[in-house]
């Protein structure tokens, strides 16, 4: 069984929003709702500034608070490491939305179920990368199987220093961030 992870190279993100639109189209995400976002933070005073860019999405945590709180098992962890939602079982109690430290869930208002990034599960089944990864202009997003030592993501996580978001919450994310800033050569 693979163990899917995403690695995001922040230095290569150009905040172009291609991932955001690709995700919305691929997954038919309703208007004004998002499964992924792009964050741009600029610190300092003119002209000494530093900027950080990164895309964010469901971290498919190994210790997922959303799965723990879900009363019906609609939110569940799969053997491939992803956190998925069984829409049929969702009662729309929204506990998972409050449980997520990363604020990546929303309610599909038409149907009432909670929704979020699935790592494009349907594409993985077809052997395709998630839509955001496939279209990432800066090749900032990388995706692969951590159980395969030869995968690109395995190699990067082995050889580079990485971090995850909000490690203090103890969620053990499967989305890893590298190169917080571009190299100042």
């Amino acid at each position: 069984m693979p163990r899917y992870v995403m690695v995001i190279d922040q230095s290569r993100c150009v905040a172009c929003m291609a991932c955001v639109v690709a995700c919305k189209r691929e997954n038919d995400v309703p208007a004004e709702h998002y499964r992924t976002r792009v964050v741009e933070m600029v610190r300092g005073e003119f002209p000494r500034l530093r900027s950080e860019m990164r895309s964010e999405l469901c971290n498919h945590c190994d210790n997922p608070p959303c799965v723990n709180i879900c009363p019906t098992g609609a939110s569940h962890k799969q053997a491939d490491g992803t956190v998925q939602i069984n829409r049929r079982k969702c009662v729309g109690c929204k506990a998972c939305i409050t449980a997520c430290p990363y604020d990546v869930r929303y309610i599909n208002e038409e149907h009432g179920y909670a929704d979020k990034c699935s790592f494009c599960q349907h594409r993985l089944k077809e052997g395709k990368e998630p839509a955001c990864v496939a279209t990432c202009i800066g090749r900032s997003r990388m995706f692969g199987d951590l159980d395969d030592p030869n995968s690109e993501v395995s190699q990067i996580l082995r050889e580079t220093s990485w971090r995850t978001l909000k490690p203090e919450v103890g969620t053990k994310p499967n989305v890893y961030y590298i190169n917080q800033f571009p190299r100042k050569s």
């Binding site: 109690c93 929204k94 179920y113």
Partner: peptide, 26 residues
Amino acid sequence: LDLERKLNAFWFYLTFKPVSPMSWGA
């Protein structure tokens, strides 16, 4: 009133999730 899918509430009683306080609650 707060549930987004009221008709699905029966799922509370088709599951018991020992770690979910909401399941306990139900």
